[in-house]
Design a protein around this nucleic acid. Structure first.
Lengths: 208, 208, 208, 208
DNA sequence: AATGAATGAGCATTCATTCAT
DNA sequence: GATGAATGAATGCTCATTCAT
């Protein structure tokens, strides 16, 4: 499954990701994708076996990339203070969600397709939760955090809040500065500020 | 548009809601619905005009009901203290999301279908935000809340967190007690507890 | 088959005739008819057995009426001179075609439905041809006509020309005076003049 | 729009033309056509976009061919005497109508589908009328014709009579020699003879 | 006698996929 | 390896008709 993709295949996946995020898996036909990507209709079946399998490649590819990115990120913050680590963790998760909002825009909705993909996604979230728990414990130990919320609760709040804002432009844009086309950019800033306050409040953060 | 529905029509809407939440609008055929609901395929067009219009009725119906329910709820908590009001507000929103999780399972995803429906949904959220702002202000005035977060931020967190948990059973069930079929029930309790702590932390709640 | 129709049934037939002439048999749904006639959908099956059978009643009804009308007409011209009889015959046929253009608008096209109807229609035309032959012979005998064209040829020309003009408003209206809504009225005058000239030319008419 | 058609597409158009002439546009399903043409149902949409568009191609194709054929024909008779030209003109129109009787069998009936097609058809008829007028004038000038009927009247008679005979086999076959399967062939001869007599009578033809 | 509700068959079309080259 | 043509299955929907009252 850990195939390397050619330039052309990557291009198809990119196009597919955006279209599926916008119009849903069923709402996006292979003809839509092939037209947009300027390739032959038959290519999707040819390259990936089927539309459904293409979807699986898409998942795997994005998760794989995120895993690599997170490993790198974890290394960078390895030696910091827990409050800094927590702040960076929140910033990282939020930025990843907004950056790959195309992907996350359909990730939960379309997960019905393949149970093994759900498993992958679960592990992907668990990696974050584990790291978060480690940081919380360290903060408690060092006395900068006075409460120890469950990592899954904290993570649900961070991811859930971000995804809600990404998906509910209609509601949230009323409270966001800037032009319509900058929505995601501006919304990210606002959500990040909110979540940092929220997370540190919940942790009962007390600077030394 | 404020039609009354017959028993049979309600039944179809119920079945449709569940199927669509599970498999998406496009992924759910009128034959799926008619088979599950034990009715004739033609009935969906006959009753609602089309599959798309049935979707609109579904929205309108749920939103209408929620609006009524919220008006009633708002009356009940009218004279309470702000901390009680806020607690009830959170409980109310969370319980509604879990109760109508089928509906909320597709509400954001499938909103592309009709712009006027998006508008309705937006107003529906705004009603909550307005009430929340009122309570925050009162709490600040009376001194029980020391911070005044933006109501839209608070609301995003409440709704976003709840929806994330509803939709990501795969991840969250690992942290939830009880059997698999009780997932939503148990998850609701856990999320509610989490959100109450979160919200009151953010508000800097100080009991008199 | 020679049923008498109630007021209501007659009304349905009237509405059906016009709709079918305008949009064709298949293009006219029983719902169209029932809506226009302000009756229940089920009535058409109820009264006539089926849509197809309703069509048959329509034919029979119109043919029957025409037969009666023609018998009456034949009586009126019984004792005239052949040139007068021929002129009246042409006028009569043309006026009937234009008067019941709704009917004749679909009569040939939709005849596939029932072979016995074709038979009826044939006899209906044959009645005219027979009368025409009689008049031609008389005119030849009396010397006012010098040629004896075949009655079926003469009749084809009269009916064919009239129907062509009725059905090809798009082409013929360019040559017709008056406003668009008077098309049939004006076209009838023009066609009648044309056919009288044509028929009498062919007959080699020589006034005594 | 001036597409070239493949062998297969032509075959489908041929089959469709015959079926539609026999059973009407609505009465002919794409399944009927695909069964008869031994092709897949989806091909009609695939090749022509839709059933309706296939109809448009059919029109355009036939009219285009007729236009070409007429231009060629007009060239051939260019230098003849008016009586010869008129005779050939009548023969030409009648032969075209009988040759493409499938097409002309539905052309007026089904014209509701597309207004631009009506326009095309109108121009197609007008081309004939114009030529006819030219010949009449020339004949009047040279003294072989003593009357100048309106070209649209003459044309209505020629086309109307031919179409009537084509469509009313049931009536006309009683007067036609030969076997049933030769109806059109024999009817054409008879109609042509009739129309030549009729047209030249109306023109008051006097050989020099 | 008359009707609103309901039905099953059929419609044109679109779909992901496969085939022949 | 890559493609345009072609396919069968499924889609939402409309139809004339029938059913229960």
């Amino acid at each position: 499954m850990k195939r390397k993709f050619t330039e052309k295949q990557m291009h198809i996946l990119d196009v597919a990701e955006k279209l599926i995020a916008k119009k849903g898996f069923d709402g996006t036909s292979v003809r839509d994708i092939s037209n947009q990507a300027k390739i032959n209709v038959a290519m999707i079946s040819y390259y990936f076996g089927s539309k459904e399998k293409m979807m699986a490649y898409l998942y795997r590819y994005r998760i794989q990339k995120t895993r690599e990115s997170f490993a790198e990120f974890a290394e960078v913050i390895r030696d910091g203070k827990p409050e800094m680590q927590m702040k960076e963790l929140v910033k990282y998760v939020v930025s990843q969600l907004f950056k790959f909002n195309y992907f996350h825009g359909f990730v939960t909705q379309e997960m019905r397709h393949d149970d093994s993909l759900k498993q992958d996604m679960m592990e992907f979230y668990t990696t974050f939760a584990t790291k978060m728990e480690e940081v919380i414990k360290k903060g408690i130990a060092s006395g900068v955090f006075s409460n120890a919320p469950k990592p899954e609760d904290l993570l649900s709040t961070i991811i859930g809040t971000s995804l809600f804002v990404i998906r509910n432009k209609n509601f949230f844009s009323h409270y966001v500065a800037g032009k319509d086309e900058n929505y995601l950019e501006e919304a990210e800033k606002k959500v990040l500020a909110n979540l940092l306050v929220t997370v540190f409040s919940v942790l009962g953060f007390q600077p030394h």
